[in-house]
Structures are given as C-alpha cells and as structure tokens.
Design a protein around this nucleic acid. Structure first.
Lengths: 202, 202
DNA sequence: AATGAAAACGGACCACGGTCCGTTTAGCCG
DNA sequence: CGGCTAAACGGACCGTGGTCCGTTTTCATT
C-alpha cells in the first residue's frame, strides 16, 4: 500500500498534538499574566517563553510573530464583548429596536477599543494586515444592523465608514493630541450614524 | 557677567549648526535614494547612515527613530499634493465650487494614501502617535470645505469621519483582503460625503 | 587669532524580534 | 511492545532599532 498523503481538507480541523496544545495554553496564560502585571510593552517573546517554561522557537511556531501573539490575546479579550452582543441584555444585545442597538454598538465599541488600545496597537504593529477575526465580527454585526434599518446604499462600505472613526490610531490622536473628550467623540459618532442611516431603501 | 541662559523662546527658530544642516540633507537624500531603489523595507538605519557617510548616532539624533525618518520622507512626499491643493488647478485647487472641491479632495486623497501606503505605515510603525503635520494639513483643508458648505454639526469630528475611511490600514484591508476595487471605494466615499453634508446650517 | 562651551558626531554596545536546524517526542501501526 | 514518521521542541544565532558616552566641531565672544 502506498504511503498516505492526506492533504488536510479545508475545514476539517487538524488534530493538535497534546504537547502542542499544552504549550499553547501555557504560553497564552503566561502572556496574559505579563500583560496584567507589567503592561503590554513588557511582553517580550523571550519573557513569555521563559515564563511558560518553553523554548523561544515554540512561541514563534505557535503565533508566527509578536503581533500574532497579541492578536491571540486580543481574541480572548474580545470574547466577552462578542458574547454581550450575541446574547447579552439590550440595547447592545438582541431585543432592542435596531436603531437603539446601533447607537449602543457605537458607544460600546468606542469604549472597548479604548480599553484594548495597547493590545490592539501591538497586534497591528509589524503585521501586514490586521487580525481579521476580531474585526470581522463587529463588521458583520454592523452590516446586519444597517440592513435591519433598511439603509440604502453599499452596506459593506457604510459599515466601514462607521467603524473607521473608532480606529485606535484615530481615537488616540483625537484624545491625546487634540484634547477631545470621549463624550464628544461618542456624540459625534451618533451624529454620523444618524446621517448615514438617513437614506433608506423602499 | 553671569553666563547667559537663553532658554529658547517658543517660535523663535533655533539656528541649526552648519554641519547639522549638511548631514540632515545628506541623510534625507540617502534615505530617499534607498526607498526609490530598493523599497521602504530596505531603509535600514545603518544603511542610511553608511550611505550618507555619517555615524548611526547622527541619524537618530536628527530623526529620533526609524518612524521619524519615514515621517520626514513622507513630508517631502506630501509637499506636491499640498501645493496642488493650495494653488493647483481646480477642482482640487481653488476656483471650483466647494462641493466639487470636496469630491476631488476625497478621490485625490484616496489615491495619495495608496501611493504612499508603504511610507505611511512605516512612519506609523512604532510611533506612539502619527505624524501630526501631514495629517493636519488635510484635516484643516477639509474643515474649511465643510465650513464653506455650511454643514451643520461638529465640523472637526465630521472631518475626521471623512478622513478615517481613507486610512491606509483600512484601505489595504478592503482591497487586499476583501477584494474591493478602488473604484467602488471611491464611489462609497462620495456617497458618505453627500450623506454627511446633507445637514446644513441656517 | 585664541578660547570656551554648547552642540553634534560616531561607533561600540545592548535588547528584542525572528530564523534555523539538530534533537526530542507524540502517536499510529504492525 | 517496538519501531517509525511527522510534528514539535529548544536555544544558538543573526539583523536591526535604539542608547550611551568619550571625542570632535562649530561658532560666538573677546
């Protein structure tokens, strides 16, 4: 019988070896610990490796790069928020009318981005593109809301238009350099949202 | 007579020593040369220093960091565009009605950001905040146009809302990952602009 | 011209991200 | 259980960004 050449079928999850899984866990919690205790800047690949008791090469095999590791931490950080959107109380969660959900989305996303600012920037740092998974959830939800509101136009682009001003780089410039208050920015986002959804279908 | 302690008065330009000026020139053109011949990634601080015939420390004194050097190159890159806005032909330059200038601004800015993408990302890389000078010109002009159009609301924030979707990180995601065409994005920007300026003062 | 002090210079040095490759281990199969 | 293969491991190694400090240069003042 010829040797088998199982090319991994797309979507079929490739079993992770037990030691690999164990190390992934150890690395993630070591990294999280470092973030909590000393801040994002202190998260050195050597430090994480040492703290998790594995070699440096292992860290890079698992996460590709420092940005990749940060993205993994970011995924964990976002899990709560995503849960609140999917099944939390209104108006952020389901149950409220779409417009209220939209406004709650904006406010909440603004705060979430500010909370995770350091992590988000670190996850973007040398990466050619941002972690798509994290971004994708919010964008999809936003498109859904715009559709519910029967907004006319290119929904995908309008969703981007609403997410873009909440980008961390922009928020930090507004707050730290131009001295704007978070309240003002939040109010501005609501205004933008209203202008965008003013044009309806039908 | 006691030694003089001239604290530099703000706004009074501190004379640059002749050797310093010479080296700045040499460094900038060496860096530009490297960008042109080998791309942004090839611009190593050592390479620039060697190519300009100065020590590495000098590069860092002048530009603080790699991001700072890139920002300086970006300033040069933007000079042409700024000139076109200030005194070029309409509709980008003065002379056309504000709405036409606004639409020309969006299209032109979109293309400019794509052209300078690599430089812009490199200039943002490890920096705590983006190069303010470059950003500031475009933002100021945009606020002026919105004001001319008698747009109601928080003009500064609305200007940001219009600049944000043109951010390189976002454009690259749309084009390279989501596969959108530049044409579609440009059309989407016009649509956004029209929605935003729909609410007028008076 | 001499002089003195502030500013600029240069390159050795360090820390961190990322790679490479020889070694070890998990897990399947006979 | 023994053996085999693919995967995972680890840490030496490299390149690059950034700092530091002893040396050199500029230039204002006399």
């Amino acid at each position: 019988m010829p040797p088998r050449h199982d090319l991994p079928i797309l979507g079929q999850d490739v079993r992770e070896r037990s030691d690999a899984a164990r190390n992934r866990e150890a690395l993630l919690s070591a990294a999280q610990e470092l973030v909590d205790r000393c801040g994002v800047e202190a998260v050195t690949m050597d430090a994480v490796a040492a703290s998790a008791g594995v070699g440096k090469g292992t860290v890079f095999r698992r996460f590709r790069s420092r940005a990749g590791l940060m993205a993994a931490l970011l995924d964990q950080f976002e899990a709560d928020w995503q849960a609140q959107v999917i099944s939390g109380p209104p108006p952020l969660g389901p149950g409220a009318p779409p417009l209220e959900r939209l406004l709650a989305f904006g406010r909440s996303r603004l705060e979430q981005n500010l909370r995770g600012a350091a992590l988000i920037r670190a996850a973007l740092d040398g990466a050619m593109t941002r972690n798509y998974a994290v971004y994708s959830f919010a964008a999809t939800h936003l498109r859904y809301l715009l559709d519910e509101l029967e907004v006319a136009g290119d929904i995908a682009l309008l969703a981007t238009d609403l997410m873009a001003p909440l980008e961390v780089v922009i928020l930090q410039q507004q707050i730290e350099i131009e001295g704007m208050s978070v309240e003002r920015i939040a109010a501005g986002w609501e205004d933008l949202a209203l202008r965008i959804i003013a044009r309806r279908r039908t």
